[in-house]
Design a protein around this nucleic acid. Structure first.
Lengths: 148, 148
DNA sequence: GTGCGTGCAAATTCTTTGCAATGCA
DNA sequence: TGCATTGCAAAGAATTTGCACGCAC
């Protein structure tokens, strides 16, 4: 399982301890295909009787987010959730119906960033590119009139 | 003042009333060059003794945001603030030092969105492209060693 | 054994809501 | 005048912090 070890490597590289709780959080993250909130992870952990506190979920997400292993996703109006970050530079697309996430590679964002720098004179430090829509499966369902 | 009338047109088009408080909020928004939070607007309004409640600021921002006159901006880690939206489709770049905002036109995001749709099969509904960096003035200052 | 990590509960921050009074159209 | 709008205060949601105990190293 390369993903799990990727997470634990992140912890040890920072001189942090690998605890039962952190492993449980990482497991939950890997099981939550797609996006997830701290609250959702906490629910999953409670369901699997792992007894990890919400505080720990928040703190672990903070660590993983600093280390670049997960990233926050944003909707048009709200901060929404986290996703597992790609291994290389990428952006995320999240299904607004089921929450599943896909990764975007070769998105052409470098050109976009360069153009923006040229246009505005800004020294650009980072960028958030966040797409939202319906995944293939949900788009199919929505084509049929579902009511309400 | 085309900007002010643009805001009031938005209200009347929705059948909403043009009140002293909403005008004050719009004034504050236009004075706040760059990005601003509801709290900051409220502070500005209190400073200019306009006596507009925080609740009203939130509600007015909600209306303007729905009407597309302002939009929310996102940092890498947090929902941050609002900015005045462009008159046409555009994206925003915000200075991480002073909060000033520039608008980006011809950003090439259509191609990006199309490529993403092709790659993932998603039916893309909307996208958030948010850039952050140092504006020209702040970049200059930061070049000199400022300490801490 | 040491000190990081944990979990509870309380604190904090941000935002929304209920309701009576106000004022725009 | 009628009804949208306001503002207070209180509720609510999300997240952070303080502190005593437990466990990884």
């Amino acid at each position: 399982m390369p993903d799990t070890s990727r997470f634990s490597a992140l912890l040890t590289a920072k001189g942090l301890r690998l605890t039962r709780q952190r492993e449980a959080v990482v497991d939950a993250i890997l099981q939550a295909k797609g996006s997830f909130t701290a609250q959702e992870l906490h629910d999953m952990l409670r369901a699997s009787r792992s007894g990890v506190g919400l505080t720990t979920v928040y703190r672990t997400l903070e660590i993983l987010s600093e280390g670049g292993a997960v990233e926050r996703v944003h909707g048009l109006n709200h901060c929404e959730a986290f996703v597992v970050a790609g291994k290389h530079h990428s952006h995320t697309i999240v299904c607004s119906n089921c929450g599943s996430a896909s990764e975007l590679v070769d998105c052409g964002c470098d050109e976009l960033v360069a153009a923006a720098a040229r246009q505005t004179g800004f020294r650009i430090e980072d960028h958030v590119i966040q797409l939202r829509g319906l995944c293939r499966a949900c788009a199919r369902k929505h084509r049929e009139p579902v009511g309400v």
